[in-house]
Write a protein that binds this DNA or RNA. Structure first.
Length: 285
DNA sequence: AACATTTTCAACCGCAGGAGT
DNA sequence: GACTCCTGCGGTTGAAAATGT
């Protein structure tokens, strides 16, 4: 038997009575209940004993991409989009790696975002989304626009803007670029420089010193864990820039299950003027 | 209102690689 | 070392929803 054949006969993946397609409410309940009693992992055992007629793989995917309680759904914020652009310029299509820097977002969601939004823009420009030209377009048009959105958002909520810690971590991490998927392209550096212009990194030690209860804490104390209980909050970036009244407002918003920020991602990032502007720029240089 | 087209995103697939035997 | 099983990753697909005509 060839290696390929061996790989394909993966235990639980054969069998005719396996269900496929969209999950039903009953299946979701079954899976959630099983995991709440037995924990995550050992997916093939789970598939076998939970009563689900699904493969372990399918169960894993459903849990990690949809059912897991701390998953953040909905449109990506400008900060998150910025982070994806930056990280993708460093690592390429390393979705799971990128997802590690976006707390509570799944690799599948990031991958979908890239394919449906970013690659769409590349198609409109008629250039390859992995090309230097496209990265230059991102740097010269998209990133400034996202930064502007961030500024706008921060101006309506606070007097001072600061970056998300996860983004800061990336910008500070001089080693990450060594792992780049396609670092023959030099745009990530210039993109980072743009970001640095906006973010005063010298202030970082104090930007994240306010906790939800209003007490002071170290920056490390208010990273990810603290905002994870507020789905409507844009991470430590917002934590650092808000007053107590804002926090109460957010708590209200959380209780109401609504979104605190305006839905900025509904704005098209590039309109036709932008595209023509870039085309002129790209083809004249 | 009806149909066509486009967009979104959940779910599938093949493959690679690690762990255990 | 060979084999098997399991998990996780990235690419792709297709149904449903949204939008346009």
């Amino acid at each position: 038997m060839s290696n390929i054949m061996k790989k394909r006969s993966n235990g639980n993946e054969k069998g005719g009575d396996q269900r496929k397609g969209p999950w039903t409410l009953e299946e979701d309940t079954l899976l959630t209940n099983y995991i709440s009693h037995n924990g995550e992992g050992r997916w093939n055992l789970l598939a076998k004993f939970s009563g689900l007629k699904r493969t372990g793989k399918s169960c894993r995917l459903r849990w990690l991409n949809y059912l897991k309680p701390d998953i953040k759904r909905g449109n990506l914020t400008p900060q998150e989009q910025l982070l994806i652009l930056e990280l993708h310029s460093k690592w390429g299509n390393r979705w799971s790696k990128i997802a590690q820097y976006l707390p509570r977002r799944t690799d599948n969601e990031i991958k979908n975002y890239w394919r449906t939004r970013v690659q769409k823009q590349a198609r409109q420009l008629n250039i390859d989304s992995n090309s230097h030209k496209f990265l230059e377009a991102v740097r010269s048009l998209w990133v400034p626009r996202l930064i502007h959105k961030m500024k706008d958002n921060s101006n309506t909520n606070t007097t001072k803007a600061s970056p998300p810690d996860s983004l800061v971590a990336v910008l500070r991490d001089k080693d990450v670029s060594h792992e780049s998927g396609y670092n023959n392209i030099d745009c990530s550096t210039s993109m980072s420089q743009d970001l640095h212009k906006f973010m005063d990194l010298s202030d970082l030690e104090t930007t994240c010193s306010l906790n939800f209860d209003g007490s002071q804490g170290t920056s490390s104390q208010c990273v990810s864990e603290d905002y994870s209980s507020f789905p409507c909050l844009e991470g430590e970036y917002m934590v650092a820039t808000m007053g107590n009244s804002d926090i109460l407002q957010m708590q209200d918003c959380y209780m109401a299950g609504s979104t605190y920020e305006e839905d900025v991602t509904q704005d098209p990032m590039w309109n036709m003027d932008d595209i023509w502007q870039f085309k002129e720029y790209a083809y004249s240089s």
